[in-house]
Nucleic acid binder design. Sequence first.
DNA 1: TATTGTTATACTCTATAACTATA
DNA 2: TATAGTTATAGAGTATAACAATA
Lengths: 128, 128
Amino acid sequence: MRAELPLLEAHGLTMWGYIVLTALRDSEVRGQASLADVIGADRTRIIAVLDDLQNRELIIRRPDPDDRRSNLLSLTAAGRKACNTTQAEIQENDNSILKTLPPADRAAFLRVLDQLSLLDSAAFKPTR
Amino acid sequence: MRAELPLLEAHGLTMWGYIVLTALRDSEVRGQASLADVIGADRTRIIAVLDDLQNRELIIRRPDPDDRRSNLLSLTAAGRKACNTTQAEIQENDNSILKTLPPADRAAFLRVLDQLSLLDSAAFKPTR
DNA sequence: TATTGTTATACTCTATAACTATA
DNA sequence: TATAGTTATAGAGTATAACAATA
């Protein structure tokens, strides 16, 4: 988080904003409720995030013609680009930090993180 | 953190309370300012923590006779015991989680964490 | 004047409940 | 009645500034 935050700020993104963009890029999401579910957030928590992303024309929110209670969410071209370039910078930064480690240690470290994140999701379900 | 918090709560300790107890046990601390410095917290942030620990007779706060602006801090017997038993439970829990890993991965993981925590303290100095 | 401990204030983040509009 | 999105409110956690006592 401490390594990522400065990069996110450089793109004018918050952690939640970045999570929303990657979720819209990587998973099929219908309305805001399903988005909240996918990223493990509260419905009310992402509204200000979506307002901001929409104002900056990184996402589009429009009523679902099949159910006008719901908002269809999609990335704009600018939103997709912001997501991709930010992620590329973050991964590059991660790599530059991790490349100081012995290759075997690095591989084991990432393997263990994967293991532990599985444990974690099993024990602690997302809010709502 | 997620693994530790339930254990801390079982002992009526917050994260900051636990950090304060271990700091008082493990390092020479004169007044509250030096304690705040040791644990990387703001002076104002630990006051409520100390109030609580003192009310529950886990620490003693008394004016320093050599400089009456300052409070000398020390653990009570109960405070030392709470610190030791809580830490033992936390380490036991850590071990039970980590023992599911291959021994070589586990060793590499802990080694990398040590490395990264050094990086982190170099880049991000404690507040105040 | 500077420092120790303290209090007050504001600002952020989050959770909960209540509201509206649709179904 | 139930659900999607929204708004309002309250509660933590934190940072900053101002204060009294002492040096």
